[in-house]
Simulated assay, not measured.
Amino acid sequence: MTRTQQTLLKSPRQMAVLALTGLMLMTSTGVSNQSAMASHVSKQSSNLVAAESSVQLPRSVEQAVRQDLSQRLNIPPQDITPQDITIVSFTPQTWSDGCLGLGGAAESCLQAQVEGWRVEASANQQTWIYRTDKTANVIRLEPQSTARLPPIVSQRLLRQVAKDVRVPVARLRIAEVKSAIWDGCLGIFTPGRGCTKIALQGWQVIVAGNKRSWVYHLDQDGNRMAQNPTASGSRGGLVPAFILEENKPPIEPSVIFRSIVSGDFTGKVTQITLTTDGAITQSIMAPNIRSRPVVIKRLSQQQIEQFQQVLQAQRFLNLNGLNYLTEAVLADYPTTTLQSAGSLTQYVDLETTHLPKAMQQVIQAWTKLDTSKN
């Protein structure tokens, strides 16, 4: 059996957590607490483990993942074949405790760092993410992967995607799924279109294939489905992932838009904010530094409205809750978070040309306003 080899330096979920932690630090109160938390974020970033290109997944870990997943899929262990379950990727990790960072509220976890692995496995064209210790004596499934489409819905979706994007079903896979509650438009914003205010149970699904990805919104039975065109179209193997709701910081009513750049090896977090009075302010936080917001530019009402028109025309709301973070980046490469009222998304500058076109347009418009980037 050939085992996949990877050169992965930091998982997108870790990068997302670090970036959003920085964002919440910038928007919370208490200078002393912020400095302490920023120091913790910096320590997390610097402690991320870089995998060498020669690193191989231990056989015991691979077998444990296959065995656990086969049980979840009701496949008898003796009937498992490499074609049934594929190890898509893996990366060494240092977990925060004996529960691998996934302990429940009532669970007692050993308070010590645990060396281990984060493994992505694929079966039935869907993806599962596992955490293990070094030898898989402890193995846990990440909760983000618990949402599963019913087989009939999965089949309907993949057939529709294949038809829409002209990629054979066999080359498509469901990368991630989460349950959702939609309005009459399946949660897809279109300027000028009214949507029935109903609570429609459904799914948001990320589909990948041929080094591209697409985001689809479905009702519960898959009888209605639509591609989210704003969030779809990333290329070069860049596959988005969902941002957990608890990791989304609040945004003040006076804020029109803001960007947060965080995650480099120094632990520095830079926030640029546009408020309703036209002021663009910059604030910087590092482990032992927190600057006051400094006004770097003032916009006219016309400039504010023009930027808001860009957000609406590019349907920025449809990017909410998605990060476009590649795993093949340096551990100290910064992550950018973009946020407006009702929408938050993330990306890495290294992959800007591979982002969906609408997202690129928003980034370009924001860069023109932000004098600190000129």
Rank of each mutant, 00 (worst) to 15 (best):
Q312V: 11
A341N: 15
F307L: 02
K268A: 14
P356R: 03
V295E: 13
Q302E: 11
I260R: 05
V362R: 02
M359L: 14
A358T: 06
I256A: 05
A226R: 14
V310Y: 00
S300C: 02
S234G: 03
A365N: 02
M225I: 05
V310W: 03
S234Y: 05
H354A: 12
I296T: 09
L317H: 07
I243Q: 04
V310F: 00
L350F: 13
L238P: 04
V269L: 08
P253N: 11
V269Q: 08
I289M: 14
G233H: 01
T266Y: 11
K357N: 10
L274Y: 03
Q314V: 10
M359E: 08
Q346W: 06
I251A: 00
D332Q: 15
T335A: 07
F265I: 14
E351W: 09
Q303R: 07
T326Y: 07
G278W: 03
A313N: 13
T345D: 04
L344I: 15
N288F: 14
I256C: 05
Y324R: 06
Q364P: 04
I280A: 02
Q312D: 15
K268P: 06
L299G: 05
T352L: 12
K268M: 13
I304F: 03
P229R: 06
G233I: 05
T275D: 13
N228C: 05
G236V: 07
I363L: 02
W366T: 08
I304Y: 03
A365S: 09
S254R: 13
L317P: 00
T335N: 07
N318Y: 00
V310G: 02
E252I: 03
Q360H: 00
E305Y: 05
T352H: 08
T281N: 08
T337M: 15
P229C: 00
S232V: 06
Q303C: 01
I260S: 01
S254M: 09
Q301P: 10
A231V: 04
T326E: 14
T270G: 07
T275A: 11
Q306N: 10
R258N: 10
T353L: 12
A365G: 02
I251F: 00
